[in-house]
């Protein structure tokens, strides 16, 4: 045995390393020293204060966090975790929503049957639809609870007034997101709920044809605040297309941008509020 292997240079060394486990350390070092690794991960993983900071500061997904926060901001009894959960639910609707978009066409003739197809034929289609809908409904509830806790802890007081205002925009957009999505299944529930909702626009003062002072502006059933919203005088296919575009593109983009501003401001306002 020894005779045979002596012919290959360095082989005894190698066998020793394998036996002692040294080989793994060397392999790991070779990998972590390689150009590919060092260009991807900019700091070590060892639990040092420096790495704890870099873990946040040099990671694009985590860097909206501050690197340090006051201890009480971790208390779930203080934040109720509601802002974070709202954001997570928003992300869930983005992921499931994109999957639904592969199968759904916002056209009067197709929309309802695409829903049926999703439910009965598409693998995991029903699950994706359920998750999308329940996450959206939960998000409405958690954003209200988040707002309630921010009010109760007085966290809208200086210097956080502006972030509260952004928050009010966010809760409005959350409701609009949910409302525009409500129409898309194109079933009775959807059409009539949106009819009831958009009928209100008829009564807009000055701009709705049934609203106060409309006669001084000259709006009509076919040309007023409501018809602009739904693209006609009843909730029909043009409304479906409009709501689809608002729901999948416009509102998520605006809401997403506002969320980034919201998180940024939390940091700039000195982190989560606390007793001074």
């Amino acid at each position: 045995m020894a005779n045979k292997t002596q012919g290959i240079p360095g082989i005894t060394d190698l066998i020793d390393k394998i036996k002692s486990g040294e080989i793994w350390k060397e392999l790991a070092k070779a990998v972590t020293d390689s150009q590919i690794w060092t260009s991807s991960f900019r700091h070590g993983y060892a639990d040092t204060p420096r790495n704890r900071v870099l873990q946040i500061a040099s990671n694009v997904w985590l860097h909206l966090h501050p690197v340090k926060i006051s201890r009480h901001a971790l208390r779930i009894r203080f934040t109720w975790c509601m802002g974070g959960i709202t954001f997570l639910l928003f992300l869930s609707t983005v992921v499931t929503g994109i999957i639904l978009m592969f199968y759904y066409r916002p056209v009067g003739e197709y929309a309802y049957f695409d829903m049926k197809y999703l439910q009965y034929d598409v693998p995991f289609g029903m699950l994706m639809r359920n998750m999308h809908r329940w996450a959206a409904h939960s998000m409405v509830i958690t954003v209200w609870l988040h707002m309630f806790r921010v009010f109760l802890s007085g966290s809208y007081k200086p210097p956080r007034e502006f972030n509260w205002v952004i928050g009010v925009f966010l809760v409005t957009f959350t409701l609009l997101l949910s409302f525009t999505g409500y129409l898309l299944p194109w079933d009775q529930l959807a059409m009539w709920a949106v009819t009831v909702g958009t009928n209100m626009a008829r009564a807009t003062p000055f701009l709705g044809h049934e609203g106060p002072f409309a006669e001084f502006v000259g709006v009509s059933q076919r040309y007023d605040a409501r018809s602009v919203l739904i693209g006609g005088s009843i909730v029909g296919p043009p409304a479906l297309l409009r709501f689809y575009v608002l729901h999948c593109i416009f509102i998520p983009l605006v809401a997403g941008a506002l969320m980034i501003v919201h998180f940024w401001r939390i940091r700039k306002d000195g982190g989560i509020s606390g007793p001074l």
């Binding site: 204060p49 704890r52 900071v53 873990q55 946040i56 985590l62 966090h65 501050p66 690197v67 340090k68 926060i69 006051s70 201890r71 009480h72 901001a73 971790l74 000195g270 982190g271 606390g274």
Partner: peptide, 13 residues
């Protein structure tokens, strides 16, 4: 605020 601060990584994350 700084008198009792902790690292976000790992405590918050």
């Amino acid at each position: 605020i700084t008198h009792d601060k902790v690292h976000v990584w790992p405590y918050l994350v």
